[in-house]
Write a protein that binds this DNA or RNA. Structure first.
Lengths: 110, 110
DNA sequence: CATAATACCTTGACTGTCATAGTAGTATGT
DNA sequence: ACATACTACTATGACAGTCAAGGTATTATG
């Protein structure tokens, strides 16, 4: 049996976290990662590769769209934008998360 | 993108749920499953196969042990018993779960 | 001029979950 | 007597999300 990693615990919530960042405004991949890492205060990890597969998944599903920034200097950036159905998915996922907490807490408490 | 199933949300918590049942006393596979399903009130699912792979994993890791019941009638039952390190794992997993809730709630709220 | 940082991306391995299938005994209704 | 449902356990193969490892290219820094 492996040591528990944050992966086990955050699994299935990556998309939700990404959407919750994008609902506040367009952002690009690298920055989103840095943002999350900072807010996790080293308690959990979330790898770059994991996020890129999340972006891909979300875009394929039509929950986000992307466009290249017009940086004249610095590396080019790919910005992501949440769509209407992305907002709806976020709402739903947050709801599911609340339900999950209720149910799991009840299962574990007594 | 697939429809979210309970699997995504409970993933990584199955072992914890199993341990939390066994800490209350020995029990056998089929009954553990029925127990969980009942307490989920149809809101979530947790498949028999998933539990059996959890039993296997936990036993391989030394967190539970098993023995055959001495049923004289009815199907034979394999009982599971939590070990000391199983109790410790449960304590740890519950702690992790609390931490996860704190962190994820903070990430999602604002 | 080497090193670090920014910024993107791909591939393959690993793990937990589940659909599906199977074995075998017991209880129930007709 | 016979079919059906339930109890009880198990194995196999597919699938999806995560990550380790590696890569490309540009810009900033000492």
């Amino acid at each position: 049996m492996e040591v528990r990693t944050s992966a086990d615990l955050f699994r299935g919530h990556t998309d939700t976290v990404v959407l919750s960042i994008l609902v506040k405004g367009d952002n690009y991949g690298y920055e989103i990662h840095r943002d999350i890492i900072e807010r996790l205060h080293g308690k959990y990890e979330l790898k770059e590769a994991t996020l890129y597969s999340s972006y891909k998944r979300l875009e394929a599903g039509g929950y986000i769209t992307s466009y290249w920034g017009d940086e004249t200097l610095g590396s080019r950036r790919k910005y992501y934008s949440i769509t209407e159905s992305g907002v709806e998915l976020l709402r739903q996922n947050k709801n599911d998360w609340k339900q999950t907490q209720l149910v799991l807490n009840k299962l574990l408490e007594d």
